[in-house]
Write a protein that binds this DNA or RNA. Structure first.
Length: 268
DNA sequence: ATACCATGAACAG
DNA sequence: TGTTCCTGGTATC
């Protein structure tokens, strides 16, 4: 289940497998009728922006995929790809003499192909993505600093900054002792700049490990080299008690989503 | 077997 | 602000 780190990791992994190769593109489920428009084309490159994934095709058109809450890719590296499992919206298969690869996409919120302008329209409504080299931190900082909306809402708003989801918002606000309902205007620019850095580092770690782990290993009482269980991997998200002060974690609604925080470490 | 919930976001009004 | 669309894991009967 995807926040921005998942999309950037997918772009990277799929680039290794598919970039520069001619692909067969189909829609076993039938709902992605535009598959025919890029069927047989070469996938020039993949691009991640926030939680959006773009396929740059040799036809000049650009594919757009958004996984939403449920979307998933499945990679098959066998010569004979298996029968599509469930409702496969898009299937791409390498159509050359290289390593066999088939990738299935199921359950996405968005899956389309269009002219570059369509991609530009989507990107234009996204705030800076901490995982991108071209991101402007100042823009994100000012987007937050001038808004009276709650920080918990601002971090989920993809036009403020892009790629952050419900887990990273809770974790980053905890690290900086910011209550999810604190208005953006009540944060200092320095605080917001540090928050950006924390989010960038958390997202980078997420790309590296392909999962969300925000705690550092030495904050846990675990044997060296042991895998961190999901419930132990966060400071406040879905925790019963704060990892740092053992106060019971509070769950409140912010921007229509459950936001976890520590009432002691994040008083205001 | 069924209900509910979730790391998302568009749309209606 | 509420409704709708995706899917799958876990909880509850």
């Amino acid at each position: 289940m995807p926040e921005g780190h998942t999309i950037h990791r997918i772009a990277r992994d799929h680039r290794t497998l598919l970039a520069g190769r001619a692909l067969r593109v189909s829609s076993p489920q039938g709902r992605f009728t535009d598959a025919v428009r890029v069927d047989g084309a070469t996938l020039v490159d993949l691009e991640a922006y926030g939680k959006h994934l773009f396929h740059h095709w040799s036809t000049g058109e650009i594919g757009h995929i958004h996984l939403g809450l449920f979307g998933k890719f499945r990679v098959h590296r066998t010569a004979e790809p298996p029968e599509p499992r469930g409702a496969v919206r898009m299937r791409v298969t390498a159509d050359d003499d290289g390593e066999p690869v088939t990738i299935d996409l199921a359950g996405p919120t968005a899956c389309s192909v269009g002219p570059p302008h369509d991609r530009d329209v989507i990107v234009a409504r996204l705030g800076p993505d901490p995982l991108r080299a071209d991101a402007d931190p100042d823009l994100a900082v000012h987007n937050m600093a001038r808004s009276r909306r709650a920080m918990g809402a601002l971090l989920l708003d993809q036009s403020v900054l892009s790629g952050v989801g419900n887990v990273y918002r809770a974790e980053a606000l905890f690290v900086h002792g910011i209550h999810p309902r604190r208005p953006g205007t009540a944060c200092s620019e320095h605080e917001l700049r540090m928050l950006w850095t924390t989010l960038r580092d958390m997202l980078r770690a997420g790309v590296r490990s392909n999962r969300i782990v925000t705690v550092t290993r030495d904050e846990l009482d675990l044997p060296r080299g042991a895998r961190i269980p999901r419930r132990e991997a966060t400071y406040v998200y879905k925790r019963d008690r704060c990892l740092r002060c053992a106060t019971p974690i509070a769950a409140i609604e912010v921007a229509n989503r459950t936001c976890y925080h520590c009432p002691t470490c994040q008083p205001t």
